[in-house]
Design a protein around this nucleic acid. Sequence first.
DNA 1: TCCTAAATTGACCACCCGGTCATTATATAA
DNA 2: TTATATAATGACCGGGTGGTCAATTTAGGA
Lengths: 208, 208
Amino acid sequence: MISLNNKFEQLPEEKQSRIVNASISEFAEKDYETASMNTVVNQAGISKGSLFNYFKTKSLLYDHIYKLALGEVKSYLRKVRDETVDLPFEKRLSKIVDSGVQFIIEHPRLAKIYFRLIYSADSPNRKKIVSELQKLSNDYLGEIIQDAMDQSELDPNLNQGQAVFFLDSVLNRFLKDYHEAISQGDANQFNRDEWVKGITTLFTKGLS
Amino acid sequence: MISLNNKFEQLPEEKQSRIVNASISEFAEKDYETASMNTVVNQAGISKGSLFNYFKTKSLLYDHIYKLALGEVKSYLRKVRDETVDLPFEKRLSKIVDSGVQFIIEHPRLAKIYFRLIYSADSPNRKKIVSELQKLSNDYLGEIIQDAMDQSELDPNLNQGQAVFFLDSVLNRFLKDYHEAISQGDANQFNRDEWVKGITTLFTKGLS
DNA sequence: TCCTAAATTGACCACCCGGTCATTATATAA
DNA sequence: TTATATAATGACCGGGTGGTCAATTTAGGA
């Protein structure tokens, strides 16, 4: 026995995806407490009893969904890290922003769940999840910054932790605002190239 | 007739502050949907009917509270802006961080409401409020950055909007993390001076 | 002291929630 | 075809919600 969720995983794939889809929509639209299991079952076209048979509690369903969202985020990060490993810091940063934007466009609902998780305070196990995410981001951006330090593209005596923090702050905030702009239909206010250039300039040369 | 809330404002001050206190606690602890009017009336020691007599709906009570929180934030910003108007950019930044930290320590619950408002998505009129906040931040940080540009402490050809965005991202994120660290009792992980120095260095000289 | 107008109360309403479980429908093996 | 195990159902439960309003308490002037 590997998984504790075999009930759900042994379902026909079509049914699984109906349920996952409905759950993603609901958890993207409302925060954890406000999201309704009733809405999920109605949108998925199954009965309430069935859903609670597959996932014993709301919290376990949420677990399944956020892990799924996080998995997608991670695979994107891994992809862009590996694909840019030989590029200079500036180009790397640019690609990171690019693929963040791409992720948001391709998975707007997952992005919403991700941002809700980071910025809101009411998901179950929030502390554990957020610290996990922090580690992920630390590892990911830390590696990129360390590479740049090793290549003397960034000051080798940099406080690496701080640098990661700054980069993370700006990137996350940019992507969050971009995501919000998209979901309100006015993403044109963002000239992507200009922003990428601005961000890389900030980190390499500062504002003076 | 100036105010529409005269019912509440004509109450004895002691009673007003009991109600405000209870409301602040509740809206700080839970997000808008989850916060309970029952909890508020119990903690304030008044009856439910009375509260709904003073504030016709939950949303109107929330309005009153967030405006109060915002007012405090604004007065802090105004104060630090005026007190630092003659200082160089670096010193100014440092004072801004200082007074942000001070605000968080003095008004932890208001800070929580403020951060919830910015980062969460479920307060009523959120769009309007957030854009109001953005304007506030733009005016405030914009002025400080413009001053630094005028004094040639920052590049006079800077994209001012971007610069404000970056500064806002880093400052807000720092204060948010600091606030969370405090409310979990381990704020010692933040060496304030080191962070202030790091932030000012980032913005003036970059990381290379 | 009594009367009236205003303030306060809390039982009550309709609604929604997460979760349960006896009942029913479905699939499978004999 | 029939008997049996398994899966799916939705009425139902206790509890909490924002909001209401008839009844009661309080305050103040005559």
